[in-house]
């Protein structure tokens, strides 16, 4: 498996961010993940999560996810008041397990995409999105 520099950075930052979070928030992020995985182990890689490095406005952040072989993907925003974002279930006529959405991010944070594969295993990707606060912007 290959990591791009950005992936590696994101994963590292992800771990750092999780470590630095208040326990209540951390618990709800963990709950949101466990609710999807049932506590199963999650392997890194095999999931592509595209998100802007810098979002010009946190109200509308375009992201896309893709995980060959996945039957469902859950997106988790670790820095939002609630980490829940969306769960995408792919039907038999989905040409690929991929989708693009626009999401709200309350602040700079890591977002996670966790894929449930056809064999019941789980994989994940993370991305850090910096959310800018405008100078004026009318």
């Amino acid at each position: 498996m290959q990591f791009t520099r950005r992936d590696t950075l994101a994963l590292g930052l992800g771990a750092a961010a999780l470590a630095g979070m208040p326990s209540a928030v951390l618990a709800s992020v963990e709950d949101e993940i466990a609710d999807f995985t049932g506590g199963a182990e999650i392997a890194d890689g095999g999931v592509t999560l595209d998100a802007p490095e810098i979002a010009e406005n946190g109200n509308t952040v375009p992201i896309s996810v893709s995980a060959p072989g996945a039957v469902a993907i859950r997106i988790v925003a670790t820095g939002n008041p609630s980490p829940k974002v969306a769960t995408i279930n792919f039907g038999p006529l989905a040409a690929s397990p991929s989708a693009a959405l626009r999401i709200r991010l309350a602040k700079t944070q890591d977002i996670l995409a966790i894929a449930r594969m056809a064999d019941g295993s789980f994989r994940r990707a993370a991305a850090t999105v910096k959310v800018t606060i405008g100078g004026c912007g009318g």
Partner: peptide, 22 residues
């Protein structure tokens, strides 16, 4: 037959946009 079925939370932006392949 199902193509896609998405559960959406309040973190989805105003005027929801969804793109996928069928």
């Amino acid at each position: 037959q199902s193509v896609i079925d998405i559960t959406m939370e309040p973190a989805i932006s105003t005027n929801p946009y969804i793109q996928f392949e069928a």
